[in-house]
Amino acid sequence: MDSEKQARIGRLKWHCRRALLELDIVFQRFWMQQGDDIDAGSEAALTRLLAFEDHDLWDLVNGRATIDDEELEKCIGMLRTAGFGAESGVFG
């Protein structure tokens, strides 16, 4: 990965630090599963998603709200299906 992309991913990862623990965990699992080298489409969708307010974002992830946007829907789907389980641990 070139240093420019590494910096962009570092910034995205930091923007995944949220006010709500629920989202912290969802994003942590997303990165563990996807790794740093995500494609440009996912990077763009994630960037847009991270601009949402925490409660709204959590409503989208837990299915209490929906959004009419194919790219964001796909990204939310990836967040929802990222690995889970009590023994996977929380690192923050």
């Binding site: 629920e22 837990n62 929802r80 389980g85 009590a86």
Partner: peptide
């Protein structure tokens, strides 16, 4: 509402069928 989703998301269990740790 929400407990089923939380158990699924964060414990990996279907709370209708399995207990939540």
């Amino acid at each position: 509402p929400g407990i089923h989703e939380i158990a699924l998301q964060f414990a990996g269990v279907d709370a209708l069928k399995e207990p939540i740790p």
